[in-house]
């Protein structure tokens, strides 16, 4: 379904701010798989998702999605296949436009937009129906500007928008991180429900070990722009939040070891 091979990306090449954000990442995701991506701050999780979505040109590597090579497709073209929810609730919705208009825009994701009425009666009925399934009493406020809603409400709607037309791939980038615990739980419940119901192929980035342990059927832990650990199948099911924490501790210790080793070398040879 999704094949990502040897992705490389360096930002700000040749400056003091040069960052090697992706150093050869490869992933293989069969249809219906749900991959959770963990990793420390700056380990390249968002960059990986952005690469798949097409937000920038890669330095090297290839991306195949739904049987097509999309490596050179611009972002708006890949949107035909990809639904996306961002970390920031403000990113996923157009604040001055109404809830209904936002959803209607999503109902034509990746399709030609013509001079037909954006909110025909039958679409409005469908909107009301699917929004009421969120159980957030938003179905009576479809004409309100979406910017007046809370972060949690907006994130739930963004999720609905991203999956309104079944995407070949759903990308979630720490989409509950900016929310208060109660809203985060709610959005997470909706996420699980939608993914299971439509059997969506999903890439989800999270910083929560608990979420990673509970959700998905496979895990990848990223470190410094590369994949450090992978778990699938029974391995993944056996993994608890504490085991994941232990792996992080491992990575940290290894890194410190690297640093002391480097210091030793420096002392010896310089």
């Amino acid at each position: 379904m999704l094949t990502v091979s040897n992705l490389r990306k360096t930002f700000n090449v040749g400056t003091v701010n040069e960052v090697r954000a992706l150093r050869g990442v490869s992933l293989e995701l069969p249809e219906g798989a749900f991959l959770v991506i963990l990793g420390g701050n700056g380990s390249g999780k968002s960059t990986l998702l952005n690469a798949v979505a097409g937000s920038f040109r890669l330095d090297a590597g290839e991306i195949h999605l739904a049987g097509q090579k999309v490596t050179r497709w611009p972002e708006h073209r890949r949107a035909r296949l990809i639904g996306r929810v961002f970390q920031n609730p403000f990113t996923g919705t157009a604040p001055t436009m109404s809830i209904a208009e936002n959803l209607a825009l999503a109902a034509r994701r990746g399709q030609r937009r013509k001079l037909g009425w954006a909110l025909p009666r039958n679409l409005m009925d469908e909107l009301r129906d699917r929004v009421s399934q969120l159980k957030m009493s938003l179905e009576d406020r479809l004409d309100n500007a979406i910017g007046t809603l809370s972060g949690g409400q907006r994130q739930a709607l963004t999720l609905l928008m991203a999956t309104w037309l079944k995407p070949a791939l759903l990308l979630l980038d720490e989409h509950t991180a900016a929310l208060d615990p109660k809203s985060a739980d709610l959005v997470l419940r909706v996420t699980e429900e939608i993914i299971t119901r439509h059997r969506l192929t999903t890439l989800m980035v999270t910083h929560s070990m608990q979420q990673a342990a509970n959700l998905g059927d496979r895990i990848v832990i990223m470190h410094k722009g590369a994949v450090a650990y992978r778990f699938t199948g029974a391995d993944k099911q056996r993994l608890g939040a504490n085991d994941l924490l232990a792996r992080f501790e491992d990575l940290r210790r290894r890194e410190m070891l690297d640093e002391t080793a480097a210091a030793l070398l420096r002392e010896t040879y310089l």
């Binding site: 073209r77 996306r84 990113t91 604040p95 436009m97 990746g110 399709q111 991203a162």
Partner: peptide, 11 residues
Amino acid sequence: DNPQMIRALGV
């Protein structure tokens, strides 16, 4: 209003 959002919706 939000170029990033609408680009992600294929525009």
